[in-house]
Simulated scan of single mutants.
Amino acid sequence: MSSPDEQFDRVRREPDPLRQAKLAGELIAVYQQRSVELARLRKEAINRAAVERGISFSAIAAELDLTRGRITQIRQGAPPAERAFFGVGPVSVAVPLRQVGERSLPVISSEDSRAAEVLTTLLTGLAFQVKPQRIPVDGNWAPGEDTVAICGPKSSPVTAAAIESDPFLTFAPDQAGKWTIRERDGSRVYESRMDTDAGSLGSDVAYVARLMLPGGSGTLLVIAGVHALGSVGAAAYLARHLKDLYAQVGTRRFSMVVTSDHDGETVTRSELLCPPRTHE
C-alpha cells in the first residue's frame, strides 16, 4: 500500500482534472478519518497517563503545553475507545445482492437493509464515514481495508473462505442441507429456532466474527444470520454492547454467536448464545 505522501503526490501529478478531483476527494476522506482516529488516540493516551502513571490532568496539560480546560475538551469531545473496533475508516458496509425469481435486477433483502441501517447509525455516531457496498450475486468481491459484511457463507465464497480461518466455529449446512453454526470440536450446534420450531418464526441466531481474509491480506468483520433476520439481531446487539465487546476483544480476531427474537424486523431481544473468543 502506498504511503500518504505517495498518495498526495499522485493526486498532485494527475493530469486529468476530473480524475484529479475524484482522487482528491477520496484522499480528503482518508485524511479526515485519520484525524478522527488521532483524536481518539490522544484522548486514550491522556487517560492512560492519568491511570497508569498517576499523573494529574493539570500536570498532563503542562507537559503537553495545553490548558487544563483544553484537556477537558479533548477528553469529552474525542470519540470513545471502542471506535477502534471497526478500524480507522472510512468503513464499507457490504450487503449481498440476491436474484429473486425471474426479476431482471437483483435485490437486497429488507432484513439486510435494516441491519445495514442499524450499523450505519452506529458507525456514524462514532464519527466514521460510511460507504455502502454491494456484493454481486455470484458472491465474488474484494473487501476494503475497513469493511463490515452482512453476508453469510451461502451468499459469498469470499465470506465462506474467511470463516474457514475461525479455529472455534464453522458455519455450514448439515447433511440434510440445513445451515447451522457449530463448534469445531463437535461439542455444540447453534440452530435457528425458525428451523426447529414452527411456532418461532421470529427467533434466529447469527455468527459474528472478525476474520482473517484468505492470503493474510487483512481482516473482515462478518455479521451473518442463519436466516437474514438474525443479522438484524446481531447488529442490534453490537449497537447496545459495543463498549463491553471492545473491552473483551479489542481489535483482535474473534468469533461469537448471538441469538435474537423479533416482532417483524423490530428486535425484542438480542443476547450472546456463545461468548466471544479471540483467535490470537
Rank of each mutant, 00 (worst) to 15 (best):
A172T: 15
A84Y: 14
P167W: 01
V148C: 05
E183I: 06
F168K: 04
P136H: 12
A142C: 04
V88K: 14
L105G: 04
W179P: 01
I108P: 00
G87Y: 03
I71V: 15
G125H: 09
L126I: 06
A172N: 11
A81S: 14
E111G: 00
P136G: 07
F168P: 05
I181Q: 05
F85V: 06
V118H: 00
D138K: 08
P136S: 08
C151P: 06
P136V: 08
T170M: 07
P79H: 07
E117A: 14
A116S: 15
E164C: 12
G152Q: 15
V91D: 04
G89W: 11
D146H: 15
E164M: 11
R103P: 02
P167L: 09
D138E: 07
F128P: 13
L105H: 12
P167G: 04
T121A: 14
Q129Y: 08
D146F: 12
F86R: 06
I108Q: 03
D166I: 08
Q129R: 15
F171G: 07
R103H: 06
L126H: 10
V100F: 07
G186M: 11
T120M: 01
A116M: 02
D138H: 12
N140D: 02
S165A: 15
F85E: 10
S156T: 09
G139K: 03
A127M: 08
V100M: 10
W141Q: 03
S110G: 02
F86A: 02
T121G: 13
R103I: 08
A149R: 00
S192Y: 06
A84R: 15
P167C: 08
T180M: 03
P153V: 07
E102D: 12
L169H: 06
R103S: 11
V107Y: 01
T159K: 01
W179A: 10
V100N: 03
Q73L: 12
V158D: 09
D166K: 02
V118S: 00
A84S: 14
E191N: 10
L123A: 04
P96C: 00
W179L: 14
E145D: 09
R98E: 15
A127G: 00
A94S: 15
V95A: 02
R184Y: 02
L126C: 13
G87W: 01
L123Y: 03
I108T: 14
R114F: 04
D185S: 13
R75T: 06
V93P: 10
R182I: 02
